[in-house]
Design a protein around this nucleic acid. Structure first.
Lengths: 117, 117
DNA sequence: CAAAGTGTGTACTATTTAATACACATGACA
DNA sequence: TGTCATGTGTATTAAATAGTACACACTTTG
């Protein structure tokens, strides 16, 4: 139980300050869930919603879906699919990067983006 | 639905050839599930078991847990935890590596293992 | 002041997940 | 021949997941 609920509530309330379309009800209806359910989610009365709903919420609030999914205790299904296709390689790589500092990760990201193998 | 069941059945039957301890029943009891349940799993009559059970099965059969979990359509919880701590970095890295050939992945793995950052 | 919009409490539900328990027929084996 | 082990069919289930439906009280606002 992280602060998924608090996080999206404060984000939504911030947006609500200068846009009345970000009331709990209107957001709920736009992302296709019941207002009462979103209320419970924001207050942490229920566990975070499904991946699909979390992603719609992220888009609605202008948040990074991967970050919001992480707060929800999940990892995006498309990332899981990538890993599942080469489980040994990805498992080794990810475990190896567990303790690496952020700048090392960034370094690898750039290297892969620019590198020609 | 991949061939999770077929895969473990053939693996178990192979081990059974020269070790009677690898009967369906005995394996089931050693990993702590009902023989009838393992029977259904092997024949694909039910979906693959939980992560914990899959991992015990992998150890029992001398298989790589990450590979068996992948066949079961899952990604190990500990990998997910690593990703969830730095979702943006890992998401970008993994998506970038989606199309990279195996040797490129291996290259990165080695670089991270040996590299000093 | 009435109508509309707001957030929330309570009750309920369908589906999926991850199994158990028991009975049965078959085959090995001593 | 009896007993032991083997694999499987049938029935059932406890818990988790992912929500809906409706009523209510309060607050704008036209």
């Amino acid at each position: 139980m992280t602060h998924f609920g608090k996080s999206i509530r404060s984000r939504r309330e911030h947006l609500h300050l200068d846009d009345k379309r970000f009331s709990l009800r209107q957001v709920a209806l736009r992302i296709g869930i019941e207002p009462a359910y979103l209320s419970k989610i924001e207050r942490g009365e229920v566990s975070p919603p499904s991946e699909a709903t979390t992603v719609r919420l992220a888009h609605e609030l202008g948040e990074d879906p991967d970050v919001l999914l992480a707060l929800a205790g999940k990892v995006s299904g498309d990332l899981q699919n990538i890993i599942r296709k080469r489980p040994k390689l990805f498992a080794e790589l990810i475990r190896q990067l567990k303790e690496a500092p952020d700048h090392a990760l960034l370094h690898v990201v750039r290297e892969v983006r620019d590198g020609e193998w």
